[in-house]
Simulated assay, not measured.
Amino acid sequence: MRHESRRITTPDGVVLAVYVHTPVGAGPETPTLVLAHGWTLSHRTWTPVVEALADDPVRIVSWDQRGHGGSRKALVRKEARTISIDHLGRDLATVVDTVVPAESPLVLGGHSMGGMTVLSYAAQFPSVVKARVRGVALVSTASHAIPMGARPGETRLMRLLARGLPVIGGPVIRPRSQRAFLFGDVADPRHVKDTVWQVAHTPLTTIGAFYGAISRLDVRTAFAALEDVPVTVLVGSRDKLTPPALSHAIGEGLPHATLKEIPGAGHMLTYEATDTVVDAIRSLL
């Protein structure tokens, strides 16, 4: 498989870091799997899945969401005040239009905020979804009504972070708290370390700005565009960030979707339940 890193620019001037993995002998008609990562993370979240699919006849595209990973410098202060999940849906459209051949059928995968990105894309570009998308995997995510602000002062703190300087969290991010909050009953220390690294290298402005965007989330208009598209919804029974009830709400909006709750797993299913995620994607492909 050939690996390529690219920089692409969105219509509103944001530079995104994009990663393309192309199998040997791939042509324009080769299916493409496009993977969107979650809040405070990066494309690295999907690495275990990408590695597991390395020998499959599928082109794999991932990218760092604006303000995250290799794209992090793009989130300026003005943008931090106005950012929404709809921006991310449009970024997904730019990624598809720029790096995926027009003849290639699509399977879309989204983890956490990445799942919201996929749903926003479907809501904004329903005709494209109906014409090109052959399947959707929604992992540890939600369509609306995420319970934010449960801890005292949390919302005010996030607003202050969004207005501050774009410095990374670094030592403020504690491995023990991240493990407790993001993982379930069993967590590989290597996976916790990689997750902590991603969170610690996300600017505090990005963390605060997207907290607000996620708290305002409602992408249920996507359901109409996905009514004829195979959809798999995965969630860990111990997910504290996007609890199982939110995945079940997606299932209610998409009655044809396959919904699987993974016992003992937390929010980081691409690490905690890689085989389950890979099997779901292979079924969609």
Rank of each mutant, 00 (worst) to 15 (best):
H3N: 11
E4K: 12
P11S: 02
D12N: 11
V14D: 13
A17S: 15
Y19V: 01
T22E: 15
G25F: 05
T32E: 06
T32A: 14
V34K: 00
V34P: 01
A36G: 09
S42T: 15
T45M: 11
V49L: 00
D55G: 13
D55P: 02
V58E: 05
R66P: 11
G67F: 06
G69S: 12
G69V: 12
G70D: 05
S71T: 12
K78G: 14
K78A: 14
E79S: 06
R81N: 01
T82K: 07
S84V: 02
I85K: 10
D86P: 01
R90D: 12
L92C: 05
D97F: 04
V100Q: 06
E103D: 14
E103N: 04
G109I: 03
G110T: 02
M116K: 03
V118T: 13
F125I: 10
P126R: 11
S127M: 10
V129K: 03
G135Y: 01
V136Y: 09
L138I: 04
V139K: 00
T141Y: 00
A145S: 14
I146C: 02
R151K: 10
R151I: 04
R151H: 01
P152H: 09
G153M: 06
T155S: 13
L160T: 12
L161A: 11
I168G: 03
V186F: 01
A187D: 02
D188K: 10
D188M: 08
T195S: 15
H201M: 11
T202S: 11
T206A: 14
T206P: 05
F210L: 14
A213P: 09
V219H: 00
R220Q: 10
T221S: 15
A222T: 04
A224M: 01
A224D: 15
A225M: 03
T242W: 02
P244C: 09
S247I: 10
S247H: 06
H248Y: 11
A249I: 03
G253H: 06
L254C: 05
P255S: 01
P255I: 02
A257M: 03
T258V: 12
L259V: 15
G264Y: 06
A265H: 07
A265Q: 08
H267M: 10
A273S: 11
D275Q: 14
A280M: 04
A280T: 10
I281T: 10
R282H: 01
R282K: 13
